[in-house]
Amino acid sequence: MIAMPDQPSRKPLVELRNLSKHFGEGQARVDALRDVTLTICSREVVGLLGPSGSGKSTLLNAIGCILEPDQGWMRLDGEVVYENRWLRGNLRRLRLEKIGFIFQTHNLLPFLNCTDNVAVVLHLAGWKKSAAIARAHELLADLPVDHRKVAMPGQLSGGEAQRVAIARALANRPRIILADEPTAALDSVRAGIVMDLLHKLAVEQDAAIIAVTHDEKILGRLDRIYRMVDGALSS
């Protein structure tokens, strides 16, 4: 794990209060989130652990503004976005501006090369083409996977694809990065590299990183670990 330098006070970026979500009714009712209260600050890399069906993905979807909770309160990067209902209309714009996603299967768009897969986020945010390409090249060089910048996703190894996916997640300089099993497809060496990278990014971009994981080999590289059981959170 990269040593964290002394920094000014950390700002809370993800704040959840009594967030709840259930699916189904009656005997089929499943409480996916039960009064989840959580605060994650900038420059933190937090792990969410738990068995399948414990509510990790539901929590990630709720923080990512993909899934509407039933009740509770949520503030992202200083903006209250949910208080028993969505308070902001354009949630996709919110995701575009504040949240970066890293997927287990990297989800690179198969019809775009590596550069364009990173630049597409900037294109959606309204960047000029040349600036978007330059930023994409810069990120690919940082990771480093710039030697594959014109390759199509189908031509990449698992590690390369994951690094391109990370570059895409970081392109718009989001304050919150949600990672779903970011190292599941990687060996321990590459998993370590990715985690070091996430730490570095958290510090450099003053961002919060929340990673859902089952991967025991990266537990030591997380700042905090939360465990989820039947929709409830415990540290």
Binding site: I66, R93, R95, L96, N107, L109, V121, L124, A125
Partner: peptide
């Protein structure tokens, strides 16, 4: 479908 879901998730209108 999956590509469209990804585009929506990363903020495509």
């Amino acid at each position: 479908t999956r590509d469209i879901a990804t585009l929506k998730m990363i903020g495509a209108p």
